[in-house]
Amino acid sequence: MTDLLNIENLHLEFDTYDGLVKVLAGVDLSMRRGDVLGLVGETGCGKSMTALSVPRLIPMPPGRITAGRVRFNGEDILNKSESDMEAFRARHLGMIFQDPVTNLNPLFTIREQLVDAVLYQRAGGKKVPGRWRGFAASARQLRKEAHERAVELMRLTGIPDGDKRIYDYPHQFSGGMRQRVLIAMALAGDPDLLIADEPTTALDVTIQAQILRLIRSLVSQLGLTVLLITHNLGVVARSCERVAVMYAGRVIEEAPVRELFRNPKHPYTRGLIAAVPQKEVTRGGLAGIPGMIPNLIDPPSGCRFHPRCQHTMAVCRQTVPTPVPVGEQHTTACYLYEAEG
C-alpha cells in the first residue's frame, strides 16, 4: 500500500531581518489512509510549517523550500501549478488552522461560510460553481443542496438545532461550538486528510474533552485520516494511534502511541514526558529539560538537541543522526541507538 502522505527530507528556510532561519531541517513524515497521527513538540519546533507544506500555504517569500519532497497519493505536490493546487486542496484536504484570523469571519453567518465551503469544495477550488448545467435554476439548486449538506455537517459535528442555528453569526456561538463549525467546514468536501493544528488549545478542559471525543467519533464513523498537531502529550495519548515528536525542525522520534509513552527512546522525548506533572509525581519530583530551545538562525551543529542532552558524545556535535529502527514501527534519530547496532 502506498502512503497517502509522504514528506521526505523537507528543508525550509525563512529570510528575516536577523538572518536566515533554518526552520525545517530534513523533516520525514508519512501517513497511511486511516492513520491518526499526532505531531508534537514545543513552540517553534516547526509543527505548523510541516503541516502547511501539504496544502502549500507557507508564505513564500519569505519562506523557501530548499530541499525535499512532499507527495500525496504518490503525486509530487511541490511541482504543481497554483491552479492545480487549488483543486487539489479542495478535493483532498480539510484544514483547521491554528491562526485564528484565518478562521471564522465575524461578519458573515455560519450559513454563508459553511455553504461557501461546500460550494468551494464541490467546484474543485473555484469560487464559481463549476458544474454549471446551463440553467440559472441549477445554480439555485446547487445552493439548496449545499445548504442541506451544511446542515448535515452541523449534525455530524454535534451542533444542536443546525437547521436554525445556521443563520446565526459566529459570536452567537460558544468557543466549543465555533470549533465544531470549523471542523464542519474542514469536512465539507469529504477530505482524504484532515489537518487539525492545535484544535483544542484555546478551549477549557471540559470542552477540549468534547472536541476530542468528536474527532475520535469522526475517525471511526468516516474512516478519516487525521494529522493532529498539539503541544499537549495528554491530547495525543487520548486521541492518536501514532506520534511523531519534533525538535528544532526535525522529527526525532516516531512510534505507536502506547510504545512511545511506555518506551520512549530519544533523550528529548524522555525529557518531555518527564516534564508533565503526572499522577505519580510527588513534590520536587518533576524533571524539567535544562536549557532552552535553540535559535534557528544559528542552530547547534549535528544533533540539534546536543546542548541540552545529558548523553552528548563527540559524534553528536559533528553529524546529524538519521532515524534508526528501535522497535516495532518505532524509529528515533539519536546516536545512542546507532551505537547499539
Partner: peptide, 9 residues
C-alpha cells in the same frame, strides 16, 4: 475525568 493524562493506559 477530563484531564488528558499523558498515558494511553
Amino acid at each position: 475525568s477530563a484531564i488528558p493524562e499523558p498515558d494511553p493506559d
